Amino acid sequence: MNCIEEVNGTASRIAPREGSIADVIAGRAEWAITSGDAVDFLELLPPGCVDAVWCDPPYCSGGFLETAKRRARGMLQAATIKRLGWFVNDNMGTTGLVWFLRAVAMRAARALRPSGHFGCFTDHRMIDALKPALESSGLRYANLLIWDKLTPGLGKGFRAQHEVVLHFVNRSPEYHASDEGNIHGVRRVPPKKKNHQTPKPPELIARHLRVVAPPGGLVVDPFVGGGGIGVAALRVGARFIGCDVDLGICEDARGALRAEAAALAAPARRERST
């Protein structure tokens, strides 16, 4: 990732550049966000160009009971989609989600380098359904990463305090750090934007990406959401391409990455002004 420049003989970081998907793949820019369907987006990527596909898809595991989902027309709650929109608050049924994410994993496997990695956020209720479906893409199940949110959520009994990442690898995986465990305690960050309700903390994602993506490598997120995975990619010196079907979410994510790019360049600007 070419974000270093010489200022009076001192190396300083410059702002990661925004560009097109082609620019990022070719190394002419460091990040891009586009709008579209996740499956279609992944099919457009050249084979074997991505180091890590890391994503936070809809969980579809608790906002509505499964019996209520089965009564809905198709995969969606008709009243809910009118009020909240596509994919918000568990609109899909489990069967629909499994089919969809297997299609995503199939395209991700094609885009990954032989040394690449695939990570998918979910919660404990969806592990049994998703793990074999994702592994059927040809990727190999490698690990279960735990996000300890440090405080329990709502409810009774043993209240949920964690989410998980299902970690898969391609044919000959390469690891770029060996000092991380598979449990990461990071407090949940409340959403700042109305378009995305469950953003993931970039400091959490950065701990994942430093293991699965080399400096200057390419990270892809087909469910860009609040942009946390993209922000984390820039922090660890990787290139990033994100996609989302919602135009408003894409614009929010661009704002998050532009702010992060400016923050990364701030020390260089301060050096030049002194």
Rank of each mutant, 00 (worst) to 15 (best):
C3D: 01
E5A: 14
V7G: 01
S12V: 14
R13F: 07
R13V: 09
R17N: 03
G19A: 10
G19Q: 10
I21G: 10
A26E: 12
G27P: 02
A29D: 04
E30D: 06
W31C: 08
W31F: 14
T34I: 15
T34A: 15
S35C: 15
G36V: 14
L42F: 11
G48F: 10
C49R: 15
C49P: 05
V50W: 09
A52H: 12
V53N: 09
C55N: 07
D56G: 00
Y59E: 08
T67G: 06
G74W: 00
M75K: 02
L76K: 03
Q77A: 07
I81Y: 04
R83I: 00
F87G: 06
N89M: 03
N89A: 11
N89L: 04
N91W: 01
G93T: 02
T95H: 07
W99Q: 12
F100S: 05
A105T: 08
A109L: 11
R110K: 14
L112M: 09
P114E: 11
F118R: 14
G119L: 14
C120S: 06
F121D: 10
T122F: 10
R125E: 11
M126V: 06
I127H: 08
I127R: 12
A129W: 05
L134K: 12
L134R: 12
L139Y: 13
R140L: 12
N143A: 15
L144H: 13
L144S: 11
L145E: 09
W147P: 07
T151A: 12
P152Q: 09
P152E: 06
L154V: 10
G157I: 13
A160T: 13
A160G: 09
A160R: 14
H162R: 13
H162N: 14
V164Q: 08
E174S: 04
A177L: 02
E180M: 14
G181I: 05
H184D: 07
G185E: 09
R187Q: 08
R187T: 05
N195K: 01
P199G: 03
P199T: 01
P201Y: 00
E203L: 14
L204Y: 06
I205Q: 05
A206F: 00
R210C: 02
V212P: 00
V212K: 07
P214R: 15
P214W: 02
G216Q: 04
L218P: 02
V219K: 01
F223Q: 04
G225M: 08
V231Y: 03
V231S: 00
V231P: 00
A232E: 03
L234Q: 03
G237V: 02
A238F: 04
R239H: 07
I241L: 15
D244L: 14
D244G: 13
D244Q: 14
E251N: 03
R254I: 03
L257H: 02
E260Y: 03
L264M: 15
L264W: 04
R269Y: 03
R272P: 02
R272A: 15
S273N: 09
